[in-house]
């Protein structure tokens, strides 16, 4: 069995045990919790996201209605945005039928100021493919749900049990052709972030 062979070879060849580093210094150094929303906004915007600071869901609805034609397929995972197809009612087995979804709207409880990333788990998504297959993605987050860096992000996540989770930091993009940045590779062509005050 290769398993035993590999493990034996690894065990035989690995060096004497070396300790894990203390992460406290780094964690403290990076734990600066001022202006997180403006930092997030600057970084996310630079990464191609559209960031809106909104006072409530009505404002979000208005923006969505302005940006998207009436009648396009929108799936939402938020109770507050009930005009659209509710994500909990969709089944991941139907993933292939989401090919015509124009917009997916999701809610997150965790955003990272240093890199514009938003943490979304399977539960937030309804179906794993939804934030990827939709032509556009929108994510709602409260202004109090930002952390400074990935160090604090993983402290927040802790030992949470999720089947799948992803940090999403912008629209799908590529620069594979001569390093020219093109937005809209295989996933959403845009990411709109609504920050609730």
């Amino acid at each position: 069995m290769s398993r035993e062979k590999i493990l034996a070879a690894v065990k035989f060849n690995q060096p004497a045990a070396m300790p894990l580093p203390d992460m406290e210094v780094l964690n403290k150094l990076t734990d600066v919790r001022t202006d997180l929303v403006s930092k997030y906004k600057a970084i996310a915007t630079a990464g191609g996201s559209f960031v809106y600071e909104v006072s409530g869901f009505d404002e979000i609805k208005t923006i969505i209605n302005n940006e998207f034609k009436a009648g396009v397929k929108i799936i939402s995972a938020l109770n507050e945005l009930s005009d659209y197809i509710y994500a909990e009612t969709v089944k991941h087995e139907d993933g292939h039928t989401f090919a015509d979804v124009e917009l997916t709207v999701l809610r997150t409880q965790l955003g990272v100021a240093e890199n514009g990333a938003l943490w979304l788990t399977e539960k937030d998504m309804g179906s794993r493919v939804l934030p990827f297959i939709a032509q556009h993605l929108a994510v709602v987050i409260s202004k109090d749900d930002f952390v400074p860096t990935m160090a604090q992000a993983y402290q927040t996540i802790g030992d949470a049990d999720y089947g799948y989770g992803s940090f999403i930091s912008g629209p799908s993009k590529t620069a594979d052709i001569e390093q020219s940045l093109v937005i809209g590779a295989h996933g959403p062509r845009s990411l709109s972030v609504f920050i609730l005050s």
Partner: peptide
């Protein structure tokens, strides 16, 4: 790698999706 602060997607696979 590219000077971006993080990739667009950093996906954590823990369990298979049902089915």
């Amino acid at each position: 790698a590219t000077g971006q602060p993080i990739t667009t997607y950093s996906s954590h696979f823990s369990k298979p999706q049902e089915g």
